[in-house]
């Protein structure tokens, strides 16, 4: 009887020590779930979800405070991925947060720009170059298309332009659709 109790107690002590050591040794900094959700979000930092960036939205989803269908740039595909990750049901994009648009970049009309720097302050990824009373321009490869630079512009010289498909970014279509031959070039 006593032996059995001792054996069990010893076992408990040994396992407890092992678990305690593992908890310290393999401690994970931060919330891995938030990281995973953040990895799925498109990082436009546009705030259309109602949170001040992708990370805060990821944190809200992880806590269960936000729905998974509030991210228009991520689109249906992003919602599917979030649903798979979190084991939740798929929901179509909520209309109040916006609609999915083709990927665009902001373009500054350099004729009208007055160099007020307001858009530079608004850009979440520092993709606008310029200085006070100097013309501004957008570094297109870095622009996430978040549209945050549009409202502060006092002269409305920024417009969103959808990215054209190029030979490099063209994708083979799903084989059930026929590829239409292009228009014959005029001779």
């Amino acid at each position: 009887m006593l032996e059995a109790i001792l054996v069990m107690a010893l076992g408990a002590v040994v396992l407890g020590a092992a678990l305690g050591y593992a908890a310290v040794r393999f401690r994970v900094e931060g919330d891995p779930l938030v990281e995973k959700i953040d990895a799925i979000l498109p990082q436009t930092q546009c705030g259309q979800c109602g949170f001040p960036g992708c990370k805060p939205y990821a944190q809200a989803i992880a806590k269960g405070e936000a729905e998974i269908n509030q991210c228009p740039p991520g689109g249906d595909e992003g919602i599917h991925k979030l649903a798979d990750l979190l084991g939740r049901e798929f929901k179509s994009l909520s209309a109040e947060h916006g609609i999915e648009k083709p990927k665009s970049v902001a373009v500054i009309d350099e004729q009208s720009c007055i160099g007020c720097t307001l858009c530079i302050q608004a850009c979440p990824v520092d993709a606008i170059v310029g200085a006070a009373k100097q013309m501004h321009t957008i570094v297109a490869p870095l622009c996430t298309g978040c549209e945050l630079c549009l409202p502060p512009c006092p002269v409305d010289c920024i417009s969103m332009q959808p990215l054209d498909e190029s030979v490099e970014t063209w994708k083979w279509k799903y084989p059930v659709f026929k590829i239409n031959p292009a228009q014959q070039e005029e001779a």
Binding site: D38, L41, P42, Q43, T44, Q45, G53, C54, P124, V125, D126, A127, L142, T144, T169, W170, K171, W172, K173, Y174, P175
Partner: peptide, 24 residues
């Protein structure tokens, strides 16, 4: 070919998102 180009496009998107996150 369809699957390959879709995977490449996703890869590029992910790279762009990583750059955006870092810059933000």
């Amino acid at each position: 070919r369809f699957a390959k180009s879709e995977i490449w496009a996703r890869e590029l998107e992910k790279e762009a998102a990583d750059v955006a996150r870092e810059r933000y």
